[in-house]
Amino acid sequence: MAGIIDMVTSFGIDRTRESDLGLDSLLSVLGEHEVERAYTCSLHAVWYTGPQGNDETLRACEAHEVLRPAAVLDPRRYFDQQDEARRCFDRGCSVFRFFPHQQGWPFEFLPFIKICETLAELGARAIVPASAYGEATRVAHLLAHLELPVLLIGGGYANIGELMAVLAEFPTMHCDAHVQDGPFALEGLMERGGEDRVIFGSNSPEREFLAPLLMARHAELTDEQRRGYLHDNALAFLGEGAA
């Protein structure tokens, strides 16, 4: 039985409160749930500077087999971010995350689109938040010209209908479900958005790993669908094919 691939984790510091978001905390959660592979990023790259934070991410991934890098790109620093994407890609990182909510930039930001064009040229993958009404739609339209697989994360019961529509309409779009807490959410997303395009992410260690996991365990899914959500769909998203 294949384990879990977690596409959404991070580690680091929260400057606004006492918290335990450190690497040890993340590793502890991943170990407890026998996660096979987790894509992660240092919050240093979100809140301060990408290159230093991404180096921290790459070092953590070199030191811990379970971790895979998800480098952070910041479109506000446009002048060096395409080079940063290439630098990280050359070091084995094929997944890149964006944090527009924390960093305060809009999706219609030309630097974001240009950076995504670079990611598409590289054959990389992008993880983009889509938690508010209209965000998934905007991202899908803005990146529709690109062969860039995108994982939309953070959607909840409010925008689940939008995610269903976006996934059904745009074949490069995928979504996670770590905030999907409505009844039958997974079943609905897989049925209407595509059963191969809903991918597990936990947002650990900030969020409770068990929340999306128990939703998956209790959902009325076939074993194949459940394995797809927890593992195989991530492989397909990553271009590795199903296990």
Partner: peptide, 12 residues
Amino acid sequence: LGYWPFALPNCG
């Protein structure tokens, strides 16, 4: 001292 999340080449 240090970097800002803006396009400021040769600074930081």
